[in-house]
Amino acid sequence: MNSIEVKNLTKKFGNFTSVDNVSFEVYRGEIFGFLGANGAGKSTTIKMLCGILEPTSGDATVGGFSIKTQSEQVKRNIGYMSQKFSLYNDLTIEENINFFGGVYGLEGENLSNRKKWVLKIANLEGKEKLLTGSLPTGIKQRLALGTAVIHSPNIVFLDEPTGGVDPIERRNFWDLINTLSSEGTTVFVTTHYLDEAEFCNRILLINAGKIIAGGSPKELKENYIKTIILEIECGKTIDALTILEDSNFFGSATIFGNYIHVKLKENDTEENAKDFIVKTLSESKINTSRIDKISPTLEDVFITLLEKKD
């Protein structure tokens, strides 16, 4: 059985359709990325899947329970964490865990076992007595995720969970997510940082309430990017940019650090473009030292898909 099954889910607010007839599945134990710009319908979808917002039409099952008719069971079987951690700053780490355990009805031996587990997986052993408010963002983040799964939910929703932490902390956080997922917990993540989406097993892109693409990070890059992006290293970068822009030969041209990135028009070949660049720049006495095709990022995929929509 799939962890989440969404069928024709729609949510309207007055005349505005926030989520428009959306259907998809999330497999058990996978890390599933749900991506979209602000206002694309991500939060509305999450709220419906968590059983706190009723759909206008369609339905979904979360952990086997219908969000329409069994929203209470849905709530008890999921965990939720957002970037605005709901931790109490004036409580210690241990007190926060106790508090959230209490909210989910854990007590006695059960609570103390789960507490030990949270401290272990979040790598917080020995830090129990520290005041939460004084902790670095990275540790708060792991604690927030730990408390969100204290009641052993089958599915956990992470709504824009990271931001502003150093890369080592970010890796620790994703290690924790990987641990949860390998223990069978389904992880549903929203983010608009596309480099982070690379950590997901499968991704769905949503825009204006509709699903516009889906697949593994690799599949998305292979299936949706048909235009070639070239990186050019040359002299007088800024002058060269103006020349290349004015040539109208490219879809777009932009400065990228010490280089220029040009996006070829559809159906244009790499060889053809390379010849054009070297020739055009040399006419202005600018020397081209390197032109390389670059692999697209998920951000390129996302932007390409949205440009097509416009």
Partner: peptide, 10 residues
């Protein structure tokens, strides 16, 4: 660019 969506960021 913190907290800005990818399209606006680009």
């Amino acid at each position: 660019t913190t907290g800005v969506d990818p399209v606006s960021r680009r």
